[in-house]
Amino acid sequence: MSSKTDSPPSYEDALQHPKSNNYPFQTQHGAPLPPPPSYSSSPGACLSPHSYWSQGGVYPQASMCPGAGFSLSAMPIPTLSAGLPASSPGEMDDFFSNQWESTSIRHAFIRKVYLILTVQLAVTFAVVAVFTFVHPVKLFVITYPAIYWASYAVFFFVYCILICCKEPRRRFPLNLVLLGIFTIALSYMAGSVSSYYQTKAVIIAMGITAIVCIAVTVFCFQTKVDFTSCGGLLCIAAVLLMIIGIVTAIVLSFKYVPWLHMLYAAIGAIIYTLFLVYNTQLLIGNRELAISPEEYIYGALSLYVDIVHIFLFILQVSGAATE
């Protein structure tokens, strides 16, 4: 049996002479409970369970830890399956806000490009209609082909500036002025070519071009196939089209072969339709490659050139078919 000295003290003795070393959880009467341990970003700042007992069973006060509150800086942050940090709701809100802002910027960019493209196509097809349906204008264009070559020189010069020089392409209003000159030059060229064909062939070409453009736009916004990763193949196709065009021009200069002319025009229409798909997906921006939202002039220019070339190639096919 243990002695009296080993037995617990009476309540009055405990109040006068507390023995915290023997009874770790004994506190003075009326004193508040010790605060819970405080966490810190420094792993060794607070006591471990082993050091808790080595110091007489007394929890460290909050002032013993340098930082109040638990910090994530010393812990690995778990990530979601998409690689997003799951650190706090605030950071997740910021991420989704940035995603929404990026999407809204892209949508505004697409609307701006298609607005500019609509104006360009309206000007071009208005010129084509005048050169086709107004007989005196049609005769004037055919009589003075030098204006066509002058417009071609302006077209090529401005096109090189807009494609190769970033500063004029992005500086407002210089970019719109250059794009307007380019549109007028290419519209005159398209109208001059249309004046050599029958009215029926021009109308058919306009209708087919509109159907192709609408179908390509809907396809690009719906498909999951990434055509932006096929830029090398499209470059090869463009080189082949150039070679076929040179060979066709040489052959047709000696003897006109309708089926050869139609074949070349059909190949050209198909290749430029693929270019239209490629540039439209660059515009949308949810593929491997994308156009910067600052390049709205470049986006409108690319789509416009593709559509006009599709129209001219289809016009050659329809013109050869209606002869």
Rank of each mutant, 00 (worst) to 15 (best):
S20Q: 10
I291Y: 01
V216K: 03
P89H: 03
S71Q: 10
T143N: 15
I203E: 08
A129H: 05
G231R: 11
L234F: 05
A201C: 10
F95L: 09
L283F: 00
A146R: 13
T228A: 06
L283R: 02
H135N: 07
F95T: 09
S229M: 13
A265K: 00
S38C: 15
G67S: 08
I297V: 10
F133M: 04
T248N: 08
R169D: 03
L179H: 06
I214D: 04
C46A: 10
P136M: 07
I161G: 00
F311L: 04
K200M: 13
L276V: 02
N98H: 08
S20W: 09
T103M: 06
G56C: 01
M75K: 11
V277K: 03
P9M: 14
V218E: 12
P66T: 03
T322M: 10
G67T: 05
N98E: 06
P43Q: 06
Y23D: 08
R287C: 08
W259F: 07
P49W: 06
Q16P: 03
R169F: 07
S2N: 11
S88I: 06
A215R: 07
Y114Q: 04
L117K: 01
I310M: 02
E101Q: 09
I246L: 10
T103D: 07
G299W: 01
H17R: 08
H309A: 01
Y159F: 15
S104T: 14
F140D: 13
F125Y: 04
Y52T: 00
G268P: 00
T103I: 11
A82P: 04
K255D: 12
A62Q: 10
S2G: 09
N175I: 04
V141C: 12
L176P: 11
M206E: 07
L186F: 12
S81R: 13
L15P: 06
M75Y: 12
S318M: 02
S81F: 12
L139R: 13
S73H: 11
V127I: 07
P60L: 02
L15Y: 12
F156A: 15
A45T: 11
I214Y: 05
V225T: 15
G245E: 04
